[in-house]
Amino acid sequence: MITITVNGQRHDIEADPNMPLLWVIRDILGLTGTKFGCGAAQCGACTVHLNGEAVRSCVTKINRAAGQNIVTIEGLSANNNHPLQLAWNEMSVPQCGYCQSGQLMSAAVLLRENPNPTDQDIDDAMSGNICRCGTYQRVRAAIHKAAAMQTEGVKS
């Protein structure tokens, strides 16, 4: 039995301790916003926050998450109103949308640690997330937009 906290909720999991967090989240907890893209930490579609870090859940065994805090895309905000989600909406970033949970979870760490990222910072933080539809230009613009929204929000 392994206990993990996902989006603030405690779960006692009966599973092979080697099972990647991705499959625990998807197949056992039924939270399907976190995606399977490569299974080899290459594409970032499975990115979740483990104690605030943007880990690739497809290679992170549930053992590593025991007793830890996990946030998935479903828990990024209460109302789809994280500045990134608002910016994503405003700029119609997603096309097929499959990689976007991962893009958002990565961008959220960037924005938390660097409230005003440069293009170089965005390259450095976001190049682990593949988008086959090629939404990169919009992801970049939306991160800048969210940064501005966040700054304005702090001021007001």
Binding site: A41, L110, D123, S127, G128
Partner: peptide
Amino acid sequence: HTMNVTRGLDGHGVYSMRCSNCHQAENT
């Protein structure tokens, strides 16, 4: 290293590209 991985100040990467985000405590 593909995916534009960078060192960061502490040598463990930056932002959402920290080494341990993919590299576990043991070989996968």
